[in-house]
């Protein structure tokens, strides 16, 4: 019995528009172990947020899951009726979004929101629920939690609000937490605090996390494994250390080279020419081929299969021969 919490297999998400059907997520597969933090990175439009929404069943029309399966703790959840899915979201999945204000009701105190959420999931008294809420706020690092719990969301600063949202997501002791760009709206010095809180809380609660972000720095700090998405497809997935230090896919290589770091010398950054194709005119074959220096004829015709390369899984025709290409 493996310890897989979440299994996503060949997930396809389509949006029907007047210009035809857009495949926003194209056959994405990955597994998530219990207690693991998986990073989903990609540029805007790479399909990372849509993948997250698809897992929790929050794709609204005109979008739909067109193919593939999602299993949570052995149960298939992608085809559940919305009422059942809603209950699973409440019980087993916690969510943290970029803008904390979308998750908090401005009209209620933090105490009321936390206590209510705890009470819907646990059969305990109001007093106990409140104690539990204070404990959670304390754990996510809100100073004087017993006093501040009766404040309204707008009385907290951005960073503190995001901590409240994390506490709220943890209320039901979820098995899976989906954090969609949780630090993007925050200041640099607060960002790393939030990443720290998220990481600590998940290991304490034994929850698995899908961390969706465009920021490789956040991934490097928080994730165990990372999946790199490009134009709705998986480019590379593997342990964070390996993907960052020894990226295999030409896109990941270019991406890592294009991030300025504080230790790097030299004047120019590695740059990937062009930009990610719009979903409306994704080229046939490998979506990265037009920007890839090493593209071969086959890349322009056939979409590459994912192959195991060392510890990683990579979708690139270059990987055909014997694993890594330097």
């Amino acid at each position: 019995m493996s310890d897989t919490l979440l299994g996503v297999k060949d997930l396809v998400v389509e949006f029907s528009t007047r210009r035809g059907i857009l495949t926003a997520v194209d056959k994405v597969s990955f597994d998530l172990e219990r207690g693991e933090v998986l990073g989903l990175v990609g540029e805007s439009g790479a399909g990372k947020s849509i993948t997250g929404s698809a897992i929790v069943g929050l794709i609204d029309p005109p979008g739909r899951i067109a193919a593939g399966t999602v299993h949570l703790a052995g149960q298939r959840i992608d085809n559940l009726p919305s009422e059942k899915m809603r209950r699973i979201r409440g019980d087993k999945i916690g969510m943290v979004f970029q803008d904390p204000l979308t998750s908090l009701n401005p009209l209620y105190t933090v105490a009321k929101q936390l206590v209510q959420t705890i009470l819907t999931h646990k059969d305990i008294s109001k007093k106990q629920a409140r104690d539990r809420a204070i404990e959670l706020l304390d754990k996510v690092g809100i100073p004087a939690a017993d006093l501040r719990i009766d404040d309204y969301p707008h009385q907290f600063s951005g960073g503190m609000r995001q901590r409240v949202v994390i506490a709220l997501a943890l209320c039901a002791d979820p098995e899976l937490i989906i954090a969609d760009e949780p630090t993007t709206a925050l200041d640099v010095s607060v960002q790393s605090q939030i990443v720290g809180v998220l990481k600590k809380m998940c290991s304490e609660h034994g929850a698995s996390v899908i961390l969706i972000t465009h920021d490789m720095g956040v991934i490097a700090e928080a994730a165990d494994r990372v999946a790199v998405l490009y134009s709705g497809r998986m480019a590379e997935i593997g342990p964070v250390r390996d993907v960052i230090k020894h990226p295999q896919h030409p896109y990941t290589k270019g991406l890592m080279g294009s991030i300025p770091t504080i230790t790097q010398e030299g004047d120019r950054l590695t740059q990937i020419p062009g930009s990610m194709p719009r979903l409306t005119d994704r080229p046939p074959g490998c979506a990265f081929a037009p920007r890839c220096e090493m593209a071969m004829d086959v890349c322009r015709q056939n979409h590459p299969e994912e192959k195991d390369v060392g510890t990683a899984r990579v979708a690139c025709h270059l990987m055909r021969k014997e694993g890594a290409v330097a």
Partner: peptide, 10 residues
């Protein structure tokens, strides 16, 4: 996005 940021910085 980062890959575009590199282009603009260069």
């Amino acid at each position: 996005d980062v890959s575009v940021q590199a282009q603009i910085l260069n």
